[in-house]
Amino acid sequence: MSKLNVAPNIAKPDDFYARLLAVHEGRSKEESDAINARLVLILSNHIGDAAVLDEALALAADG
């Protein structure tokens, strides 16, 4: 069973973060919500592994 990778895995964190925000730039709240939802679905599919997804969901929900 695979594990969720919670170690740093993004080579240039500042670059990535800026690109993430750039996608939302100038968007309404509604558009941004839609983009975020699509992004979650796209990345979830890429991961695919149910155990990893469950771990990710749990980590995200742990407010």
Partner: peptide
Amino acid sequence: KIFRNAVLHL
């Protein structure tokens, strides 16, 4: 609804 429409869009 946001997720549902995201699925349909994709």
